[in-house]
Amino acid sequence: MKNNVNNKAIICEKLTKQFGDFKAVDQISFDVNQGEIFGFLGANGAGKTTAMRMLCGLSFPTSGKASVAGFDVYRQQEKIKASIGYMSQKFSLYENLTVSENIEFYGGVYGLSRSEIKTRGEEMISKLGLGNEAKKLVGELPLGWKQKLSFSVAIFHKPKIVFLDEPTGGVDPLTRRQFWDLIYEAASNGITVFVTTHYMDEAEYCNRISVMVDGRVEALDSPANLKNNYNTHSMDEVFYQLARRARRTGD
């Protein structure tokens, strides 16, 4: 396993999370390559967020093995946390801090120096075109801008892997496109992107995607191969065919 660590960002083997009798995540196994954009699909309640939380070191797995950035999810959670970025479903920058104050805080928390924060922060703000908004409270920004900012903050400390949990929920198509430009740019800089989404057009942007149904990974391949395997031209159709097998009701 040691050898694989070098070229795999994430390795998952029979990873399981059980709440009482309920298996939220049921023996999932997959690898994610370094620099890859990995789409993590599934209906509501399929167990995506639970799986992601285990990989981010926010929750203990019940059984199985997994390593993220070469660190074990049972014992080295804090090391995992230092090498990943995370953008949760909920918007989680501080709304009562300004754009630059948020950048400063999260940069500082990840151990960047004040001078690094200053130069990189200015760079980032100008790239996002937020020059005029840098002194505004984040709560006053429109949702699309918030999400772009949130993503940029998540990769501000140059993590090895970034986890995105439905980053574009509720965002307009134009902003979604811009958002994915940011993702591509991050990936080209060598950051591995692990992203969940409900938009099938976004799924097509991924190098590989997995589809979770009832806590299990039911399909895992590139979008083109998946469409071939399921004899269809659209990812929508692939998703319908898989998700229809679900016994659980979504939330």
Partner: peptide
């Protein structure tokens, strides 16, 4: 409630 604590928990803050 706002969810920022989860963001904090996923950082290497001690």
């Amino acid at each position: 409630e706002i969810g920022t604590i989860e963001q904090i928990n996923v950082t290497p803050i001690k």
